[in-house]
Structures are given as C-alpha cells and as structure tokens.
C-alpha cells in the first residue's frame, strides 16, 4: 500500500458516497446513467469473486464488500426506488456494444486461461469503458449537475491515481501488470475531456455545460 493507492481508493469511495448522497438527498437520480451503474455493478461482481477463495487483508475484504454492496444499492435506487426520476430517454447507450467485445477480449487476452482470471480480466476491461454511457448521456443533455460533476471527478481521479501507484510499484516492488496498466490508462484518457471542463468550469463556480 502506498500513498497513491490509498488516496485513489479513498477517491473511489468518495465518488460512490457522493452519488448515493445526491440520490438520497434529492430523492432523484436525474442526470445519472443507469447503464453505467449496471456496468459498475457487473465490474465489482466479476472482479471480487476472490473474496471467497483468498484472504488478503481486512482492508481489502472490507473495501470489496463495500464496492459490491453499494453498486447493487445504486442500481436498486435507480431502477426501483427512484425509478420515476430516471432519465431513460437520454440513457440510450447500447450495453451489448461494450459487454460483448470486452467479453471476447477477456477470453483472448488474459494472464491465465482460468475462470477466475478471465472474469477478473473482463472486469478490468469493462471498468475502463463503463463510464461511456454516462458521458454519452451528458453529451446528449449537454449539461451535468454540479454534484454529478464532483462524483465524476472523484471517480476519474481514482484510476489516474492508480497509474501513479503502478509507476511507484514498478520501481520499488518490481510489480507490473500490463492488463491493469493498459486498461487503467484507457480509462483515464476517457475522462480527460471531462477533467478539462471540470477544472475550467466547475471549479470556477459555474455549472458544467458542454460546448454545442
């Protein structure tokens, strides 16, 4: 555990808490892509199966359980409790266009052809593109609430901080996982346009609106 990973994990945690708080306080999930949230639930459910096969640390198990459970709660809130506020008309990204190619790639390019490893690889690849339905939705509506922007900034920062963690681990521990690094870089690149808008608009007190 190094400082980049710890701050990255805390940023990830903060993102999820921000999203749940936004939905709970406003009793609404307007502006949030349910499809991205379904993908995140799928990401956690397929990645953390090693909860049942190995124990790494109390921190590790607690975080995994937190991510799995909160992602399921988020999907439940969007599709059941606050369904009336869900903006389905703008959430039109086709999930099969992500899940099918990512599943195929996980079968072809992995570290080890075993069920657990393939599911982990699928999860890593899927996470890198899981935000696309949310970004697609924002490009359709042309704007995002400020709290949603904070959520996305925390969520994007987490993987960017993991990249610093991987640089650190490569130099000081000799640890290098090509699949995680490439997918993590792809994931971070997808956020760059949003990061730019967040820094130039939201941090200056303006609402995030996209150029037409």
């Amino acid at each position: 555990m190094n400082i980049f990973r710890l701050i990255g994990d805390m940023s990830h945690l903060l993102a999820i808490v921000l999203l749940l708080l936004k939905m709970w306080k406003t009793r609404s999930c307007a502006g949030i892509s349910g499809k991205s949230q379904i993908l995140f639930a799928l990401v956690f459910a397929t990645r953390y199966l090693d909860l049942f096969t190995a124990f790494i640390s109390a921190y590790n198990s607690t975080m995994k359980l937190f991510f799995i459970s909160t992602s399921l709660v988020t999907v439940y809130l969007m599709y059941f409790k606050f369904r009336a506020t869900y903006d389905a008309n703008h959430d039109t990204f086709r999930l099969e266009f992500l899940v099918v190619p990512v599943g195929g790639l996980a079968f072809l390019v992995n570290h080890n052809f075993s069920p657990l490893e393939i599911l982990w690889t699928f999860s890593i690849y899927l996470e890198s593109v899981a935000i696309l339905p949310q970004l697609f939705m924002m490009s359709k509506t042309g704007e995002a609430e400020t709290i949603t922007s904070h959520y996305l900034f925390a969520l994007g920062s987490y993987r960017a901080l993991y990249i610093l963690n991987w640089v650190f681990r490569y130099y000081f521990e000799g640890f290098f996982d090509l699949i995680a690094v490439v997918a993590g870089c792809v994931q971070t690149i997808l956020y760059c346009d949003f990061f730019y808008l967040y820094i130039t608009k939201v941090l200056k007190g303006k609402k995030l609106s996209l150029p037409a």
Partner: peptide, 10 residues
C-alpha cells in the same frame, strides 16, 4: 508480470 490470483489491488 505479476498476474496470478489473488489480486491485492481493488
């Protein structure tokens, strides 16, 4: 590559 399970990262 350190590739085997279990994974210590989240």
């Amino acid at each position: 590559c350190n590739s085997s399970h279990p994974k210590d990262e989240l």
